[in-house]
Design a protein around this nucleic acid. Structure first.
Lengths: 126, 126
DNA sequence: AACAATAATGATAATCATTACTATTATCTT
DNA sequence: AAGATAATAGTAATGATTATCATTATTGTT
């Protein structure tokens, strides 16, 4: 993999953001400063960065893909009011995997928990 | 909502199947016997049937929507070998919601757990 | 520093699941 | 049977993402 200033740009942008950004949001924001930037380049680099483990691709049900700088295993909550995605640091334990394995003949290697509800910001605004 | 023989057809097809069917699979199969059937009709009816609670729409990350006759709350396992989706009847408890709520300021109202691994069929074929 | 090898880019087209549109047809109500 | 309305088939549109490809940038080598 060769260095590219676009990749650097995209990576830094994610690292300096606190949100779970979509490819399109990253593109729109960077495009302002770098009009030559292409959406395909954003997608390509996000995929590459997640493949080498520098960021994490976040695929939630019925959601556009998001990208996370937080590499720790954790869960997410989708706010049903504003649509935002928040981290929920429920401890991801071996125990949970073992427990779940009791209920199936399949071999479980990983899991993803998606929570739905109302984010703390929307709770306050009420 | 008016009766329609197409909706009846689609509903019965799901009820007589054991799999987690996609709209396209349902369409392809029914099309053979009912060449006039339209894919749009299949989608429309699947959505309607899930809206009135007769079936459940299953949205898993990076998966085409599937439709489930099983209305009980339960989880799913995606087989990373054959791609199939299996039920995993991990008990969905209030306790789990309460536990998870400790780790966030958000109000959690529901959750979805997706397991990844190897289905029992693929385990045997090894 | 020039050069060749190759990876990355921007622009655009293609894909795929799903939804929207619309004229026609089926169902329901009286 | 007639009018009202919901559903249909067929097709077009949408939106996120990936693929294509000619051009440009980066790198390792003389």
């Amino acid at each position: 993999m060769k260095f590219s200033k676009q990749r650097e740009l995209i990576y830094n942008y994610i690292m300096n953001s606190c949100e779970h950004l979509t490819a399109d949001a990253i593109y729109a924001d960077l495009k302002a400063e770098h009009p030559e930037l292409s959406l395909g380049t954003v997608y390509r680099n996000l995929t590459q960065l997640s493949e080498i483990g520098k960021i994490k691709k976040l695929s939630l049900p019925h959601q556009v893909d998001r990208f996370d700088k937080n590499l720790e295993p954790h869960s997410h909550l989708i706010c049903e009011v504003c649509g935002c995605v928040n981290d929920v640091h429920v401890p991801h334990t071996e125990q949970f995997l073992d427990d779940a394995s009791k209920y199936t003949d399949a071999l479980i290697t990983s899991y993803q928990i998606t929570f739905y509800g109302v984010c703390s910001k929307c709770r306050k605004d009420n």
